[in-house]
Simulated scan of single mutants.
Amino acid sequence: MKLATYQDGSRDGHLVVVSRDLSTAHFVSGIASRMSQLLDDWSFLSPALEDLYVTLNQGKARHAFPFEPAQCMAPLPRASRVAWASPWRHHHQLLAESEGRVLEDGALAQPWIGSLPADLLTGPRADLQVSAPALQAGELDAEAQLAVVGAELPLGAPPAAALERVRLFGLALGWTSRALARAERAAGQPPLGSRLGVGMAPVLVTPDELGEAWRGGRLSLPLSLHVNGRRLGQCDSGKDLGWTLGQLLAWQARTQRLGGGHLLLAGPVSPAEPGKGAGCVADARAWAARAGRDPDTHPWLEPGDEVLLEALGADGQSVFGALRQTLTGWDE
């Protein structure tokens, strides 16, 4: 099943079911009007949505209409909590190398997870406006991230139980200032002000839609990241993970119960093998330096730059829809 949230002037938008090929959609007002409502009562409401999804894919839904990603908000506009994890160890190694740092012993021995404000989430076509301080700091970047939406997870739940409570998957772009992040790290602060926004692909999908791509707590899809039409890489999102998605969810549940509708963002995707591209500008620059090339062949992002992120399934079709955002400067 594929789901999206259409803009309707409210903060929560309106839930729609989207066909597998992303060509048509259908409002589901008689079942659940909001994504949060569906997640709160998943066992009761999802079977009726599945029936509608089947009918929509068969071309028999009476009130279907063409699906328009530009009309979409973030598919989960207000998550109960948003966590950001960086489980690709190779990204940390590349970043430290490019900044002239040495990772401390044990720095990568446990998952790195932080929290983000839910109001950072935006839709797939929303421009990302950058504040004057972030523009002045510079080194602006966008990270290819996986998104995982889960049901309520009890305190102390193990990874296997966490995986059973995964409801939906998506794709996200995490916008950041590397310069501000470096300053926060030097001050012993968490990366909060350096996190500028999170754009989400238009559609969330249920695990059954992913087939063999979802196995063992790893979602293996080729993520294609482009900046101004130039591809940074086509990274396998399931390779080189230091921790599975189940382990990341369970790590959070060690000390806190996770409420239903919580969102985990995992990225940037970071291949450890040369020639596989990069899931962010910082990694692309680090790879260039390793190869003896000028890192500025991959410049930091500036206002006017467009970033495109998409994942294609085995059938060649877009799984979550294209996420296309443009960086804009501060308009005083």
Rank of each mutant, 00 (worst) to 15 (best):
G114M: 11
G114Q: 05
G199F: 11
A96M: 13
A144N: 05
R165D: 07
D105S: 15
R195V: 06
E99L: 12
G123I: 08
D127C: 13
S98N: 01
P133R: 02
R165C: 13
E104D: 09
G114E: 10
S131P: 02
L135T: 07
G106H: 13
A186Y: 05
L168I: 07
L76H: 01
L95N: 03
H91G: 03
P158N: 08
A109T: 06
W88G: 06
Q71L: 14
E99W: 13
R185V: 03
E184P: 06
G197A: 10
H90W: 15
A157P: 01
D127M: 15
E139F: 11
A137L: 15
D141V: 10
L153R: 02
P133A: 03
R195T: 01
P124L: 15
Q71Y: 10
Q189V: 04
Q129L: 06
L108W: 03
P124Y: 13
A157V: 10
E139L: 14
G156R: 15
A147C: 10
V198M: 14
G138T: 08
R165S: 10
E164V: 06
L192P: 05
W175N: 04
A179L: 14
A186K: 07
A161N: 08
V82I: 14
H91D: 04
L94I: 05
H63K: 03
F67L: 07
G174V: 14
Q110S: 04
A151D: 11
P190K: 08
E152Q: 13
S177G: 09
V198R: 07
P124D: 12
S98F: 09
E139C: 06
L103C: 06
A64K: 11
L155P: 06
A134S: 10
R182C: 06
T122R: 14
R185K: 02
F169A: 00
R78V: 11
